[in-house]
Simulated assay, not measured.
Amino acid sequence: MQTGGLRPIIVAIVIGATAVPADAATIQIVMENLVISPAAASAKVGDTIEWINKDILAHTATAGNGDFDVTIPPKQTMTLVLKKAGNIAYYCRFHPNMKATLTIAP
């Protein structure tokens, strides 16, 4: 048996196993001047939220229902893959006036 014929099959399996679903999206949410923008965003389970902190202060994206609590250092970006559907109100623990909602479809 030739092993050269197996190489393309093995490569295809490895790529397929690590590929992100074609319909998954990345939703960018910016924190700047103590404001979350957009204040209301929609996504689907499997999508990635990318919080971009443009401020010189640290922020959090803290779900009111406890589903997530992400700390975003100053001038940094943090990501989270959504695993559960629902309507989630979230805020910054350090600056509670910073509020937003995320609607996650199945």
Rank of each mutant, 00 (worst) to 15 (best):
M1T: 07
M1F: 04
Q2Y: 09
Q2P: 14
Q2K: 05
T3G: 14
T3W: 11
G5F: 11
G5M: 07
G5N: 13
R7I: 13
R7T: 10
P8H: 10
P8K: 03
P8N: 14
P8Q: 06
I10M: 01
I13Q: 02
I15P: 01
A17I: 14
T18R: 05
T18Q: 07
A19H: 14
V20H: 12
P21F: 07
A22P: 09
D23N: 14
D23C: 06
D23E: 12
A24M: 15
A24Y: 04
A25R: 15
A25Q: 07
A25C: 03
A25L: 06
I27C: 12
Q28P: 02
L34T: 07
P38V: 05
A39H: 00
S42C: 07
A43T: 02
K44E: 09
G46Y: 06
G46P: 03
G46K: 12
D47V: 10
T48F: 15
I49C: 03
E50S: 15
W51P: 02
N53V: 02
K54I: 00
A58I: 02
H59R: 04
T62Y: 03
G64A: 14
N65R: 06
N65F: 05
G66C: 01
D69L: 06
D69H: 00
V70Y: 01
V70T: 13
P73W: 10
P73R: 01
P73N: 12
K75S: 00
T79D: 05
T79R: 10
L80D: 00
L80E: 14
L80T: 04
L80P: 08
V81P: 11
V81E: 10
V81K: 15
L82S: 09
K83R: 11
A85E: 08
G86S: 03
I88A: 10
A89M: 11
A89V: 05
A89Q: 06
A89H: 01
A89E: 14
R93Y: 04
F94I: 03
F94E: 02
P96N: 02
N97R: 12
M98F: 09
M98D: 00
M98K: 03
A100E: 01
L102R: 03
L102I: 07
I104Q: 02
A105C: 02
A105H: 08
